[in-house]
Design a protein around this nucleic acid. Structure first.
Lengths: 207, 207, 207, 207
DNA sequence: CATTAAACGAGACGGTACGTCGAGTCTTGCG
DNA sequence: CGCAAGACTCGACGTACCGTCTCGTTTAATG
């Protein structure tokens, strides 16, 4: 495969530093102001960049925030704790820690809200954020199967459907706990959640 | 408890019809425009009401939309289908049907996003929407215990914690599936989800 | 004929004070900044008024400046100095004094420049500034005819044409001297100009 | 007088063709867009030249337009029609014909407007446009004196003052008629104007 | 039944951010 | 070094919506 060099066109090239500065400034502004009071003028000022430069690279607030927030989730990883339950607990705690950061809370929910009426935006979110993190589920299952904690799945379509289901359950529960119920995702809760996820309600209610 | 009648002061009383018209207009505007392009002037015009009248009753866009959206969720009910699994499947489908309506998608996520930086708003959402629907979980558990599908829980604190957990898991998964993954909540998915919820991952992956 | 009361429409009436403040602020800004560096935001700020208010009343910079400048020329009057020559000299000096003010120089020429490509603007200038001042020529001629310095004119069409001609000559010469040649309109020049106007070149060159 | 060759320094010399192309493009843009909507980027594109090249040669819009417009007036000449009156009528018609061209109207007035607050620009206009055309007045007077239509003038200072006065009267009247009154400079008007100029108002009103 | 005080419609108001555009400068690579 | 291309900073543009205000006009309970 060839290098990614994007065809060195004529004229002055775009400043690479500007991109990083803008995304950082966006996150900072999200922390201080939240989504709705964040203005692109302000972001430009913080980044030491003209508003025009910003609009040359992103179509608007939504696209910019998606990119700024997406980077936050790339630090997630599935540390090996020896058992499936422990692995899940570990990654759920990491995920909750990210969602506890104001730039993530504020930014993520807002772009999700916008995406309900903007298909292009939804696709962008899916590519940049959602699908990138499904790797964690795949990794977790593979590891659990290697350990013999889960059986192998024959049907690949069924397997894919299960990955999606688990992702929705895990991500949904943590997001709901954090942003809707606004309760802390503490080790107790994580333990309870993992129990339900692995063994179901009936088991969970009768330990 | 006192009557709700708010001390019939002198002067012309507020029009009761206006409230209903405004909330309906808000939902209609959410459908057509979505949260971010909805303007209070527009809502006022649609409702055949002056902007002043609107601001006399709600503090702003957020409060108005919370009230407009909250009504949508009151139609949820836990029909008795004979078994816990069937009851869950029924209510999940109902919930998904509401979330499929654009006024709910757009409005709900937006106010949740705003609530990440506005505690009063979060409290209002919790009162108007979230806590009102926990009744469904309570009802479902009571019915399942009557049927002998679930054991009684001795510790009331533990019982409350379980209700919250289940609510986060169910609501979170459906919301995530609908609004983030943007995949349909069809009977297949609901069956799979209910299996995981009742019997856990291990069971679900090897039926 | 009825009063000018402009049909008291519904809603809050426009502030009368705002108009005056805006026009005064416009003249002040013309003095300090000149036409090309004058911004409507700045005018609004000076007038203690929101930009919206300004745009609600004038379509743009051009229209605003026409109105602001037009008022300056309303102070012109044809004082009776006893002879046609003296009357002309008097009004020419007055006119030159107005053109010496920076708000008049800068504003007038700029809107004239714009009017070369904007017929509506040209018409507005003609109504607000040019035609209003033709009264001076009419007045001067009437007075001179009363004194016997000029013969009466029988043909009204011819008379109108002469008024236009004289206006173009007088206004044109003073404007050109002031703004193009950028030389002072002092009493000497005025005397010479009046001689040419009344008695022609041949006489002027051989006194 | 030294050669105009500007010291052939090292490096690639400036393209001579570019200058002409830029000035032509400027005039074309003035015709199509007028002063205020003319942009230097657009001029550069029309001339097939980079913006840099343009700024290397002119300081800005004003200077560029002065040069582009000045060339237009160089085609004026005082054809000998046999009498002073006829000569004046001829040159006035020529002048009016130039002012009827949109690039002249729009460009000339705009730079004059700018020059009210920019002394360097005014000086440049005077050199490039105004003073260059005073030759016509000098020429006309010399010819008339040769013919015996005008007496010789002894005092050179007085003579200079008269040239300026006549120039202001002629140029001023034509410009005012064309751009302010926005009436055509037709042969009738020119005849009337020449009568006033040569014989004065009193004569003109009683032919 | 007249009074009266608040609610009402209309729309102007001071603000603030928007997204675009032009001016003039700077930074590439090519000739 | 000149030049084309085009990204850069800066600042004004004209628009839109917010939430407040000031009008003149209902409208129901009270006196």
């Amino acid at each position: 495969m060839q290098s990614r060099t994007p065809a060195p066109r004529a004229g002055r090239p775009r400043s690479a530093a500007a991109d990083a500065a803008i995304l950082a400034a966006t996150r900072q502004a999200l922390v201080e102001l939240g989504w709705s009071k964040l203005t692109l003028s302000d972001v430009a000022t913080r980044a030491g960049v003209a508003k025009t430069t910003l609009y040359r690279r992103w179509a608007g607030k939504n696209e910019l925030v998606v990119d700024a927030v997406a980077e936050l989730f790339d630090e997630l990883e599935l540390t090996d704790h020896g058992s499936l339950a422990a692995d899940i607990e570990g990654v759920v705690l990491q995920f909750a820690a990210i969602l506890a950061r104001p730039e993530a809370r504020s930014g993520l929910m807002a772009v999700l809200a916008e995406s309900t009426r903007d298909d292009a935006l939804r696709e962008r979110i899916r590519e940049s954020i959602v699908d990138r993190q499904k790797r964690l589920v795949l990794q977790g299952r593979a590891r659990a199967q290697r350990r013999g904690e889960l059986p192998a799945q024959a049907d690949p379509a069924e397997a894919a459907r299960t990955v999606d289901l688990i992702f929705d359950v895990v991500a949904g529960a943590v997001v709901h706990r954090t942003l809707v119920s606004a309760e802390p995702v503490d080790p107790d809760w994580v333990r309870g959640f993992t129990q339900v996820l692995l063994h179901g309600l009936s088991a969970a209610e009768a330990p």
